[in-house]
Amino acid sequence: MTLVTLQRAIARAVMQPLTSSERMRRSAPDGGAMSAYAARFIKPNDRLTSFERLEIYNRQYWFRLLSSMVEDFPGLRAVVGSKRFEAMSTAYLTDCPSRSFTLRNLGAGLEGWLRKRPHWLRGNRLLALDMLRLEWAELEAFDGQAKPALRAEDLQGMAAPDLRLGVQPYVKLLELHYPVDDLLLAVKAGNDQSISFASNAVQHRRKHTEVQAAAKQKSAPVFLAVHRLDFSVYFRRISQEEYVLLGSLRNGKSVQRAIELAFHESAVPSADRASSVQHSFQTWATLGWFCQQDENLRAIKK
């Protein structure tokens, strides 16, 4: 038997979902009995059968992955409910098993997977997808690339009409239907409190109430920049104009063109636009959001 044959056989068994009582399944990936399958590869010892030794890996694999999903998506879990979240996570990880060396990427395919299976989200589809996108953006903002920032002084000498700026890769721009930023902060605040059994129940009810209240709100566009400062992630509400402006800059438009697009059909009075843009640019430069434009975009323009 080659090493790769052994590795694949063990991986197939380890990655099989657990039973409802969190034990290893009795049937093996090849359709036979798991006890015979395990005995083919693994030695028993004086305390454990081959099945039991393999089961340690099977259980720890799923416990680790599911706890990582809970850690990465507490907001989505609050929206869909903890039992449904666990079943959904198991189904997702069965369809899209981890292929990365790091658990950080575990939820990378979750949005695409869920959009094809909206039944997991029941009546809260938009709210749940908003929350998922926010939580994934938070993860990407945490460790996304930071290029050398252009400072306010750097921008002063760059007043040409064709000026183009890049937006830091770690700044994530979101258009949402619900104020899930507030909801996520409330969920996390609840999770952080020290919990006894009794207070856990109280927190659970409070979280449920907050989610229900958010779901009942009339959907209204919320524009958000998820960014990083001093190794912490922040949510910053921005206007629709700012959202379009930053998005257009990121897509390679000139500053002048980006401003035109931002204020197309805008309700902001013409007289206020220049000062509004100046204020936004000053804030973003101070936060370090501007960088040199992406080389690929520069090449396309040429």
Partner: peptide
Amino acid sequence: SSYAEYHV
């Protein structure tokens, strides 16, 4: 840390 030994 390991929990299993292989025949091979």
